[in-house]
Design a protein around this nucleic acid. Structure first.
Lengths: 239, 239
DNA sequence: TCAGTAAAACTGGTGAACCAATTTTGCTAA
DNA sequence: TTAGCAAAATTGGTTCACCAGTTTTACTGA
């Protein structure tokens, strides 16, 4: 079953077109924070698109907190000025698909921080959950099975323990995108699997002992292999 | 016009309920990567909810790349195993609203990195755009006006110049959430506005000269005021 | 028995009609 | 002239039926 089909054809295109038209409207009408946009029906007719497309465009801008829809009332410009709104919409329209290097670079950055914060702030309950995840990982590894998923959950447990809801959320966004690449390019670490195990345990111990420096150091060691893999991966890309 | 009304009432609740039911279904049916979920209509009937709610739940899981909908074919489990999928869905359901401290902490982390990367990688075009943003900021400031929005765009221009599409995207997600707090608690820096201006210029100069260390240092200085403000903000919260 | 194929059933996506709540309008009465 | 208020219009949200492909089914003919 192929899952990498683009799908949704040009839906993204028409949605972005509507977003840019909403931007133009905000500029033309000089809409400020709290001002009301025309109704979805009016926008749909004015832009010559279906109301559903308008709704989807608005929902996307709501995700970035640039607009706010209120049930039986209307859609409003959020608490952000015209200049910033303009610039942000342009940035959003310019956004391109995450490339693998960016993803890994971001993951390393985020995870070194969540590890540091987890070592500082973890509660007893956090620690229990991390240990659980570590044990699942160990069991799989010792059986000689692929423990990629358990590894992922171990890292997410640390992110949770960081006490930073934003980083936790961002980790959830980017990790699955990375995992799927790994699934496709199965990393074989049969020989050095003991080493990997030790590194996981070192991270856990450091967090347990609230040893911040040691936690960061251990996570850094753990990432070295990942970064090495990525460099090889980069070289193998021919497109 | 009040914009902080919860709205959508319990829509989030029913959506999360459906997500948890999809999780249970995947477990019960032992669905693996590439396996097909029942159709939206079937799920809607089985869960006793409308098809739209099912679609929204699926769309949310698609955002995290846990599911993949293919137009006239079906919805499939993405390239991730049952164990990871289970853990990730639980984490997603557990996600809570971003608190202000987490947002700022994350912004500082991300932006120190984008600044570093921008100093390393910025192209001539990137530099031009950053300078443009800086100039807009200067004009506003020198007129004694509030330049919060221009400041935001300056930082986003740096994020763009980092050459890291993921960090750029994440910055777009979190900055507006921070800005709205600042709009509400207007920071007055009338007296030290010259200092602020100098810091912005220092950041720009460092990126221009590809002086990585200086860029990071300048951005750190710039953040000191932000962090100070946040600490005060924290103290002023009484709820 | 089985390959070939055409039709029927099913799929996610889409547009029109409907809903409940809000907002505006315009009449009434003081 | 204006405050009060009810009816009508308008709003975002929701439901339902339909669309254009895909997938399965079932029949045909060798």
């Amino acid at each position: 079953m192929k899952l990498d089909i683009p799908a949704k054809s040009d839906n993204g295109k028409v949605q972005n077109l509507i977003i840019s038209k909403i931007r133009d409207l905000v500029n033309y009408k000089n809409l400020e924070p709290g001002d009301k946009l025309p109704s979805e029906r009016v926008l749909a007719e004015r832009f010559g698109v279906s109301r559903r497309n308008v709704r989807e465009a608005i929902e996307k801008l709501e995700f970035y907190e640039l607009l706010k829809s209120i049930p039986q009332s209307g859609t409003f410009v959020a608490n952000i000025g015209q200049v910033a709104l303009n610039g942000m919409i342009n940035d959003i329209l310019r956004l391109k698909k995450h490339d693998f290097n960016s993803l890994v670079e971001t993951r390393v950055l985020l995870e070194l921080k969540t590890t540091e914060l987890a070592a500082k702030r973890r509660t007893a309950e956090d620690l229990e959950l991390i240990e659980e995840a570590l044990n699942s990982y160990k069991v799989k590894k010792l059986n000689g099975e692929n423990a990629l998923e358990e590894d992922l959950l171990f890292h997410l447990a640390i992110a949770r323990a960081s006490g930073n809801s934003t980083m936790n959320a961002l980790m959830l966004q980017i990790t699955p995108k990375i995992v799927s690449v790994f699934e496709n390019n199965r990393v074989c670490d049969e020989d050095e699997f003991v080493l990997e195990l030790q590194r996981h345990e070192a991270i856990f111990e450091a967090i347990k002992n609230k040893n911040v420096a040691k936690a960061i150091e251990s996570m850094q060691l753990h990432f070295e292999k990942l970064i090495e893999f990525c460099n090889n991966f980069e070289e193998n890309l021919n497109d």
